[in-house]
Amino acid sequence: MIETVNLTKKYGSFTALDSLNLKIEKGTVFGFVGHNGAGKSTTFSILSTLLAPTSGTAYVNGYDVTREPKKVRNHIGYMPDFFGVYDQFKTVEYLDFYGASYGIPKHEREILIPQLLELVNLSHKKNEYVDVLSRGMKQRLCLARSLIHDPEVLILDEPASGLDPRARIEMREILKELKSMGKTILISSHILPELAEMCDEIGVITNGRLVASGSVTSIQNQLKANKIIHVKLTADLEKAIVFFEDEPKISNLSKNDKHDDTITFSYSGTDVEQVELLKKAVSNGLQIISFGQEETDLEDVFLEITKGVDFS
C-alpha cells in the first residue's frame, strides 16, 4: 500500500512536485506516466527514503517515509532509473552482498539467489562479472536485487528503458509474475501504451501535478469526451456542412483535405447523442455512406492530457 498526501518537493524556488495525492491499494500495479522532468523519479526517490519531501507525507505500508525510513526500506524494492554496479563482483556475489545487507542468513541466500536468477533469466550468467553483462541483463539483475528481501512493494523507475523489444516483453512477463504474487508495484515510464498493458491503474503526471488517474479505460473515456468524427457523403457536401454547423457540441468542422467527399469535426456529445445526431442527419436527407469515429490510441490520449502544458 502506498499513499501520498499533499506531497511537495521544491528545489529552491522550483517546484518539482506539487501537492501530489496518490493512493495505491495492495496488490495493484500502478503505472506512473509523465514527460521528462515531470517529477516521476522525484516521487520515487521520496518513497524510497532517498529524498526528504519539502512538505506533505508519504506512506509505504502505513509507515511514514520520513519518520520510519528504516521500516520503509525493509518493505520496498527500489530500482532507480539509472544505476551502477560494483564491477569487481560476480553476479552471484552482487546479489549475495545485497541479500546480506537485508539481513538474510547465508544458507537462505544460497537457496534464494539461484531462484531469483532463474526468475530474471540470468542463471547462465551467474559466474560472470557484473561489469560485462549487457545493459538489459544489468537491468534484470537489478530487478532481481530489488526482490531479494521479498518486499511487498516494488518501486521501479523506468525498468524497461533501454531494453530492446524482446527484453521489454520479457520484463513485462516478469512483472506479470510478480503481480500474480500479490505485490504492489509502482512503475514509471513515458511510454503510455507499454504501461497500459500491464497496469491496473495509471496516473498521469505533468510538471509535478497529477492530472489524471484511474483505470486505463476510465482515463481513455475521460479523454474520449472529445472525439473526431469523419462523415463521408455521396452528394450535397455543402448542404451537410450547413446542417452540422447548426448542431450543438460540434466544433472544428472542415472538409477533409485528402478526400473531397468527406467532412471532419470534433464532437463532445455522448454515444447516445451521437446516435441521435446520425438519425437526424439521415432524416434530413443527407447522403451519408459512412459515419465514423477516429480511433484514439493511448499515445494520443497522453498527448491530449498533456496538451497546452509548457514542457520547457
Binding site: 524510497s48 532517498l50 526500506r73 525493509n74 527500489y78
Partner: peptide
C-alpha cells in the same frame, strides 16, 4: 551505486 546502498536497511 550509492542510491541502492542507501535504500538497504
Amino acid at each position: 551505486t550509492l542510491n541502492i546502498l542507501l535504500t538497504t536497511p
